[in-house]
Design a protein around this nucleic acid. Sequence first.
DNA 1: CTCCTGTATTCAAACGTATGAATAGATTCA
DNA 2: TGAATCTATTCATACGTTTGAATACAGGAG
Lengths: 346, 346
Amino acid sequence: MRDIARSSGFSISAVSLVLNDAPLAKYIPDQTKKRIQSVARKMGYTPNHLARALRSRRTTTIGLMVFDITDPFCTPILRGVERALYQLSHLSILTDAQNDRTRFERYLELLLERRIEGMLVIANWLLVDINLLAELKKQSVPTVVIGTQLKIDSISSVMVDNEAGGRIAMEHLYSLGHRKIAFIRGPKVLGDTAQRWRGVKSFANSVGLTVDPKLVVDLPNSFDPNHGFETGARLTDELLRRKRPFTALMAFDDITALGAMHALTKASIKIPEQCSIIGFDDVAPAALSIPPLTTVRQPLEVMGETAADIIAGAMNAMAERREFQAVQIRLLPELIVRRSTRLPSM
Amino acid sequence: MRDIARSSGFSISAVSLVLNDAPLAKYIPDQTKKRIQSVARKMGYTPNHLARALRSRRTTTIGLMVFDITDPFCTPILRGVERALYQLSHLSILTDAQNDRTRFERYLELLLERRIEGMLVIANWLLVDINLLAELKKQSVPTVVIGTQLKIDSISSVMVDNEAGGRIAMEHLYSLGHRKIAFIRGPKVLGDTAQRWRGVKSFANSVGLTVDPKLVVDLPNSFDPNHGFETGARLTDELLRRKRPFTALMAFDDITALGAMHALTKASIKIPEQCSIIGFDDVAPAALSIPPLTTVRQPLEVMGETAADIIAGAMNAMAERREFQAVQIRLLPELIVRRSTRLPSM
DNA sequence: CTCCTGTATTCAAACGTATGAATAGATTCA
DNA sequence: TGAATCTATTCATACGTTTGAATACAGGAG
């Protein structure tokens, strides 16, 4: 900027005013503006965001903490976030906690040093811990948690309406004619599990269907999301061993469902002819399985966009010293019917 | 820092020296150090990275440009990058070009404003364009391209040895006893395609096998990686229509292979009993298919780590005004045998 | 001919840190 | 005893911006 000033014959202030067209720039005649702009362009000027942020106390940067970048659940959310942020010319620093507390804390420290204006965390239940977010509150950087619910509601969150999801899945199977339905529920510690189950039960009650407890198994609390496939297969084996016939299986998530498909196929049970399967999430591999998996879609991309918009709003609020009210958003899931479900043959 | 200085009775300089334990800090007695550190801790001091970077001209930040965050090819690379960067306490700004030039350019601009010290781009052939990277050279920020090769070698790159990959895949099928092998090759514009094919041919020649041109189809140049599944299925249909029997199919990548599996299954051809299938990449969904897909694994995570290490080295070189020599790295792929390949039954 | 308002531009001080040079006392050495 | 070296600490400036306050000159109102 100094060079531009020197070379255009105006002061640094003038250059700054023009280049940002600040309010005061309205007094500067067009000719001067043109001159400064053209010199800037000619010299290949790239504003120094560091200096700008330091001075103006706005970094237009948000921290993006992911529990596991490798999880296909994350990426569509990231896509949504990027999309929303792009509009605002904000950038995000991606950190991958890899389901590890220490990493989470360390990254948080680094992000705070960089004076992020807002924080987005894509969490699973392993990572959700209000204590971890305490430092953020203390430094008053607004935070949105995506994909899970906190006990506390002083922190914003965006998630799917799990109860509705459970209901939709159940309704789909029921309306196809299934009455003997097996369930692989989620880990008990996870809030989502209870919510979805509530949806299932509420629909079952409404049509007078009772759920056979022998047809219900749970993912263990120690469940590692990376082993959903194996675990799903194992639990399905167990269900088969119980010798209670079922015509449909509802899994806690898509990967578990794929594991179940694997186990059933191995047991020479044809899908969907002999057993329908429905998953949850609509993660990418769900569409690629054979047969493609019927599932309850979480609007992941929209969730990401929504969260980013909330954060942007909160950031502006902070900058203008307004109060910002945390908000809890529940989005509706959508039934995606593919080929893994059909009428029961018996 | 000012507050710490005031409250501890020392100068800002002293505080700075102690907190960074700079060379000069060796003259400062332990007692003073303890005092300053404890005050800093008590006041909850978080260093301001913006100011630090502005002054020291080192941002310890790298730009990470991805062509499509949604592609399962990207995420293991990101994992590797994060892992390496974590060790160095460097952070990365993630940008998703979404296969769009305009976005790429805009993001590049934003990243340069933020004075990234290095740039990592995970590219596919759609995105690879030296012109896009010209600005980086001009501003002399070191760049590493992951997953594809540039014509120019003044820019570092890390990629898999495609020719070896083609050879390995071919060798696997041949050693199982397959002689009539169908191929879905990649798009012609893509360098990888030719390289892998060279591997295939070189192995075929070495064992005196000739490839039936009727059993070879190509992904179109307009190929959209997001439609690999459908395209793979469609091309397989076409192969079937040609009525040339084949006992194995080698696909350009895993998603295409899954599409092929889909088409074969639909045509009532059993995998692997009637037709073996092998993919390329070993992307996450490959392990989840039924049957799980045999494939040639790209060491994606290692590629990410390698690239990050290269960039870190280059960044240090720049900071110390040393010359940095661009480097081209080829990593060996690995055969992953799952259930989609076996001896031919005929 | 004042005084005011509007236009065009610059001054000067910050933002929070790092660091070469300076200061000053204590110790060592010839 | 004076000079040199070591130890402990501070001064002052720079990094590249933004912005409230100041300056300077016009033209119009009274």
